[in-house]
Amino acid sequence: MLKLLRMEYLLNRRQILIMLAIFSGYFLFMAYRIDSPRVFLVTLCLMMGLAVPFGFVGREDKFKTAALVCSLPVRRTTIVLAKYAVSGIAMGLGLAYGLLLATALPFTKISVAEILTVKSVLISLFLVSLLSSFIIPFTIRFGLAGIIIFLVSGQLLGVVALILAQLLGRGPNPLRSAITAVEKGLRTLLYHEATPGFLALLAAAIIAVNGLSFLVSRALYARRDL
């Protein structure tokens, strides 16, 4: 496992530096412009959850090196576990960096007390887990091209949703209903009172989402012929 993590580091160190530079610029801009800690949190998680696992898992596809990794003396389960571990570590560090940057900068509009709470940290982890737990198995199954098609399709769907909203106004619109449902879900999550029960539920959900995603990814990777 440690060998795989070391390999991921060696293969990704340049990308990590590039991403750090891009994210720093983005976080600085966000911290300067956004005064809502909740909006900051959601956009931060979106960035992390989408970009990080996509880069780590898609790399084998990009270089066509999955055959090399799977020929090394290591089990496929361990390879998948390492992908989750390295994505988790990178996303965790990215979140910590983003949150610290948002609170430590002199021009920030977000206060430490608002964002560095157990609830916001758990919500961040839950959101990135939700995204990455979908992105990782999807990339394993459909490859880099598949995930790019999916993300572009998501954007096109957004355009269609906007056009439909314009055309149909407030009338029945399935896309609008879906987006509203997601928005409501997010709102409930972000504004829910930080009771111990709620926090425990969040922690359990993080474990469950990641665990389930790992099992799916493992099954998909085990079936792959390279």
Binding site: L10, R14, F63, K64, L68
Partner: peptide
Amino acid sequence: IGFVLDEPPFYGCLRLAGMASVVAPFY
């Protein structure tokens, strides 16, 4: 097992020494 595949699946961005340092810890 040592293997030489028809299309060697190496990381193109690495130098030879780097490629070896990626593989070496597994053996």
